[in-house]
Design a protein around this nucleic acid. Structure first.
Lengths: 192, 192
DNA sequence: TTTCATCTACCTACTAGTAGGAAGCCAAAC
DNA sequence: GTTTGGCTTCCTACTAGTAGGTAGATGAAA
């Protein structure tokens, strides 16, 4: 039995992914789950609170996802590969064709502060995870890093987000892989 | 004497850069330039037409900018550097802290078709320009390309857009350079 | 005298958000 | 064991404000 507030967030997420903060309304959610607008306000009094809760949940999901990925794959190489594969699959089957926080990051200047700070937190967290994986890989001589792990992590993250954008712009999921895969390959020692 | 329609686009551009397609209204423009809403409709009957015109103008400006950049700098190395420096300066002084089309690309699923196709055209054009510069550089043995020029161009473009996103998310213009400069350096033969 | 740019005045549809009430549930009080 | 009272959830009905867009008049310029 899934709670109504969860259902609301489940419906809101793809709407945000498609159109950003201003790209959906309480009425959209209302229509989608067959509940009155006012009832949504009962669960999330303001839109800022709704999106804040959504971003919080998204970050928790990401945290769990990255952790389970680290348990599933021992090698930093495989971990990175799995991370990229996840997004490739999402974009390919259109299930989650864009990162919620990447979407919102574009709208930072007009986001409510409480939302903006959470988006920033997600970026920090993701960059931190990538950095730690890159560092571990470098120590095991699996990766050759031209920059410090933190900078390489930023570069990789930007590539992934930029690739999502290009895949959207060209309406071609294949563009994502074409951009990210070589970017990953260049880190691997064996490839040189 | 600058025309009213130009003034409208001048005002609309930073609004779109800040908040995307749904992030501004006719009333915002009206307030900014001291003209009634209805007068804006005289110049641009619908919002889709306004934004289409804006993207058309933006692409023309970009086209001119890239051409003059090619005339100013003989070497592909310097051309690429100048392109990146342009954005670094824009983001640094907050004059144009985001590419209009990168912003709109994130909103592709909900853009009117006439706008979406123009955004796609800009991406094609920019990728084409980068590709031709990279190819010229490779032929002059200035660049060492791991992929074909077209793929390297896509990678570089994604890095630039992703770096813009990160600079926004972290509210730190320095992040842009930290991401893009090493990405550029890795292409240079001398650096290896 | 037509065309252009702008105006006032208006429209309908939608925005986020509020007030107040009805139904169901659950636990404590009688 | 039933009643009471509070809590949750959802509802109808509403608000003030904003969205994009239109009709028609005015005045100036070509």
């Amino acid at each position: 039995m899934i709670s109504t507030s969860e259902k609301i967030l489940d419906v809101a997420q793809p709407l945000i992914v498609a159109g950003g903060y201003n790209g959906f309304s309480y009425a959209d959610i209302s229509d989608a789950i067959g509940i009155r607008k006012a009832s949504i306000h009962h669960h999330f009094p303001t839109k800022a609170e709704l999106v804040s809760a959504l971003v919080d949940r998204y970050r928790q999901q990401t945290e769990r996802g990255l952790k389970s990925l680290q348990e599933q794959f021992a090698s930093p190489t495989d971990q990175l590969q799995a991370y990229v594969n996840f997004w490739q699959a999402c974009i390919g089957d259109a299930s989650l064709p864009f990162c919620v926080c990447a979407m919102l990051a574009g709208e930072m200047p007009m986001l409510p502060d409480e939302v903006a700070s959470r988006v920033r937190a997600h970026f920090h967290h993701l960059a931190g995870w990538l950095s730690s994986v890159l560092q571990a890989g470098a120590e095991q001589h699996l990766f050759r890093l031209d920059q410090r792990p933190h900078e390489e992590a930023q570069m990789l993250m930007a590539s992934v987000h930029g690739a999502m954008l290009s895949a959207r712009a060209f309406a071609d999921p294949g563009v994502f892989a074409a951009i990210v895969k070589p970017q990953l390959a260049r880190l691997l020692v064996a490839e040189r």
